[in-house]
Amino acid sequence: MSETVLRLEGLTKTYNSGRPNEVQVLRGSDLELRAGETVALVAPSGAGKSTLLHMAGLLDTPDRGRVEIGGADMAGRGDRARTAARRRDVGFVYQFHHLLPEFTAVENVVLPQLANGTSPAEAEARAMELLGRVGVAERAGHRPAALSGGEQQRVAFCRALANAPRLLLADEPTGNLDPETSDRVFAALMGLVADTGLSALIATHNHDLAARMDRVVHLDAGRITPAA
């Protein structure tokens, strides 16, 4: 049996607790992600997908519940330990690329590696390898403003995988692209995931893209349920 990379148990989250405008976003959500598995998280806007991903990636904490990454319980860990685990084990991709505009494509992929202690030569070699895998190596010296939307997002994928995480979390990673570009960019992402063997939890509205993953789950009324 493959290793469990991510386990969420009984996650609850309420915003504005005790106030008239209280919003209970998560109501005991459970999810398990195995090594090498790709899972689509499907839900309408406002259902709590981003909240769930932020908790899975240690950017936010639940009111109650448990988050495990690689079998390690993250509850009660201080900011420094959570930051170290996030940097080492988790890669993030968002709907908008959030590339640093003053740096080139390759520099955007190099920087997180330098922050993780990788040597400049090794970081650049890995960055060029990743950019080559998604077909944008020839654009490595261009800044984000000179790249198309699809190219920018592919660079963002490479940046997320620069430190070889075991878990990729993606929040509508192709939601800002036209259908044709979305399909091409998603194929590049799935190719990266397959090549590196990491696990991926990908939130999407696109049911066609979701069907291309190993498993589909829904977030409904604050709880995760398997696809029918």
Rank of each mutant, 00 (worst) to 15 (best):
Y15A: 03
Q24I: 13
L41Y: 05
E129L: 12
D195R: 00
G197N: 00
R159S: 11
R34H: 15
R27D: 11
T61P: 03
P120Y: 12
D220A: 15
A127Q: 09
G70C: 07
Q113W: 01
P120E: 14
L219A: 11
V106D: 15
A125R: 14
E151R: 05
A211Q: 14
L26M: 11
E172F: 12
L26R: 10
L33Y: 02
R7S: 15
L58C: 14
S17I: 04
L161R: 06
E151A: 02
L53V: 05
G36R: 00
N163C: 02
L99M: 05
P112C: 06
A40M: 01
G65C: 02
R34S: 14
R126H: 13
G78C: 12
V110F: 04
V110Q: 07
D183V: 08
L189M: 13
L209F: 12
A56F: 04
M190Q: 15
A187G: 11
G28C: 14
H98G: 02
R126K: 09
G222V: 05
R34A: 15
L147A: 09
L198R: 01
T196H: 01
M55T: 00
R133Y: 10
T61Y: 03
L198K: 05
P120V: 15
V5R: 06
A123G: 10
S17V: 07
D171G: 09
P44T: 05
A56M: 04
L167T: 06
A187Y: 09
L11E: 08
R159Y: 11
E122I: 03
G191H: 12
V67G: 08
L161V: 09
K49A: 11
E102P: 02
F186H: 09
A221C: 06
R126F: 07
L111V: 02
A170C: 08
T61A: 11
V136H: 00
E172M: 13
V216D: 00
S45D: 00
R139G: 00
T118F: 05
R139Y: 03
F186E: 01
G141L: 08
A140C: 15
A170N: 03
A125N: 13
F96C: 01
I202K: 09
P20H: 14
R159W: 13
A170L: 08
L169C: 12
K13P: 06
E107T: 08
L167N: 01
E32G: 05
M1R: 13
T83L: 03
V155K: 08
L111W: 01
T204L: 13
P120C: 13
